[in-house]
Amino acid sequence: MDEQTHGPVAGGTENVVCALCGTRAESENAPPTWLCSVENCSRRYYCDECARTHIRAIEGRLDSAWW
């Protein structure tokens, strides 16, 4: 219960990039409409358009290689 939670990390001063289409966020943090998924122990961010397109696969926990 006393675990620390961490917000979105962009890795330095670089903007967050969509893992599918390469769209860059306007700031260091992912916008609230973007989706974050953890695959193979690393965070992947998806822009709102890619997230909408692949929402069923994402909710079904399919690996992004299957999309």
Rank of each mutant, 00 (worst) to 15 (best):
M1H: 06
D2F: 03
D2Q: 10
D2H: 12
E3Q: 03
E3D: 08
E3A: 08
E3F: 05
E3N: 09
T5E: 11
T5A: 07
H6V: 08
H6F: 09
H6P: 01
H6A: 04
G7A: 08
G7L: 08
G7R: 09
P8C: 12
V9I: 09
V9F: 07
A10P: 07
G11Y: 04
G11C: 01
G11Q: 00
G12L: 03
G12T: 09
T13F: 10
T13W: 05
T13R: 10
E14P: 01
N15I: 00
N15H: 13
V17Q: 12
V17P: 00
C18Y: 02
C18Q: 04
A19Y: 01
A19K: 04
A19L: 02
C21G: 08
G22R: 02
G22N: 05
R24Q: 13
R24K: 15
R24A: 14
A25G: 03
A25M: 04
A25C: 10
E26R: 14
E26F: 06
E26L: 12
E26V: 07
S27I: 03
S27L: 11
S27K: 12
N29L: 13
N29Q: 13
A30K: 05
A30M: 01
A30D: 02
A30E: 01
P31L: 06
P32A: 11
T33Y: 03
T33R: 14
T33H: 13
L35W: 10
L35H: 09
L35F: 09
L35T: 15
C36M: 11
C36D: 01
S37W: 06
S37F: 00
S37P: 00
E39H: 05
E39V: 12
N40V: 03
N40F: 02
N40M: 04
N40I: 02
N40K: 10
C41S: 14
C41Q: 13
S42M: 11
S42T: 15
S42H: 12
R43H: 10
R43N: 13
R43A: 11
R43P: 02
R44H: 11
R44C: 05
R44G: 00
Y45K: 04
Y46N: 00
D48E: 15
E49D: 11
E49A: 06
C50F: 01
A51N: 03
A51G: 07
A51Y: 10
R52Y: 02
T53I: 12
T53R: 14
T53V: 11
I55W: 08
I55K: 10
I55D: 04
I55V: 13
R56Q: 15
R56W: 02
R56T: 13
R56V: 11
A57Q: 14
I58F: 15
I58L: 14
E59M: 09
E59L: 14
G60K: 10
G60Q: 08
R61N: 13
R61M: 07
R61W: 00
R61C: 07
L62H: 11
L62Q: 15
L62T: 02
D63C: 02
D63M: 08
A65T: 13
W66Q: 14
W66A: 14
W67F: 06
W67I: 05
